[in-house]
Amino acid sequence: METKILLQNDSLWNRLQSFSLDTPNVDFPFSKKLAKEENWTLDFTAKAIEEYKNSFISVVLYQTELHQAKLSIKSGTCI
């Protein structure tokens, strides 16, 4: 993804990419709860979380607006 190439040396980008929404050593972490609630596969859930992180970086660093069309995760597609 182009964003990753542009931001690979940015400290905020690196911190966000290494941040996990899952609490370590729990039986039912956030990603599994999300997958279950949305009826997604774990692979798709990981991609959705990655897209949210990418969108967050775009909003914070470039002050862009987050558009519904960009994130159509609820419909089952990660763009």
Score class of each variant (00 low, 15 high):
22 D>N: 15
74 K>R: 07
11 S>M: 12
25 N>K: 08
17 Q>I: 02
6 L>K: 11
70 K>E: 06
31 S>D: 03
44 F>Y: 07
41 T>K: 05
59 V>T: 10
57 I>R: 05
27 D>Q: 08
65 E>L: 15
29 P>M: 03
38 E>M: 00
3 T>P: 00
42 L>C: 11
67 H>E: 15
69 A>W: 09
41 T>I: 09
65 E>F: 13
19 F>M: 14
1 M>A: 06
64 T>H: 10
59 V>L: 06
24 P>H: 13
30 F>M: 06
36 K>A: 11
63 Q>E: 14
42 L>N: 14
24 P>G: 12
70 K>V: 09
20 S>R: 09
48 A>I: 11
54 N>D: 13
51 E>Q: 15
63 Q>C: 12
62 Y>L: 13
62 Y>K: 14
16 L>D: 05
31 S>R: 03
2 E>T: 09
21 L>R: 07
33 K>Y: 04
14 N>W: 05
61 L>Y: 06
36 K>G: 00
73 I>V: 02
46 A>K: 14
50 E>T: 13
59 V>N: 04
15 R>C: 11
23 T>L: 10
44 F>V: 04
52 Y>T: 03
13 W>H: 14
8 Q>C: 11
6 L>V: 10
7 L>F: 10
74 K>I: 00
23 T>C: 07
56 F>W: 07
7 L>N: 05
63 Q>S: 14
65 E>R: 10
77 T>K: 13
62 Y>P: 02
35 A>C: 08
56 F>K: 03
19 F>P: 02
68 Q>L: 10
32 K>W: 02
72 S>F: 00
26 V>I: 15
6 L>P: 00
22 D>Q: 09
55 S>H: 10
39 N>E: 04
71 L>D: 01
51 E>W: 03
74 K>C: 01
61 L>F: 03
69 A>V: 11
58 S>F: 02
16 L>R: 05
72 S>M: 07
42 L>G: 09
24 P>F: 10
53 K>Q: 13
63 Q>A: 12
77 T>C: 09
29 P>N: 06
26 V>D: 05
20 S>C: 13
51 E>P: 00
34 L>N: 02
49 I>A: 02
21 L>P: 05
78 C>I: 14
79 I>H: 12
5 I>P: 00
76 G>Y: 01
13 W>E: 08
37 E>Q: 04
53 K>T: 09
24 P>M: 12
19 F>E: 11
73 I>W: 01
26 V>W: 05
28 F>Y: 15
59 V>C: 07
16 L>Y: 03
53 K>G: 04
79 I>A: 08
56 F>Q: 05
44 F>G: 02
2 E>P: 08
69 A>P: 00
50 E>W: 08
10 D>E: 15
32 K>H: 05
6 L>G: 00
12 L>W: 11
47 K>C: 03
65 E>M: 10
16 L>C: 10
8 Q>I: 14
47 K>A: 08
12 L>C: 11
35 A>P: 06
49 I>M: 04
12 L>I: 15
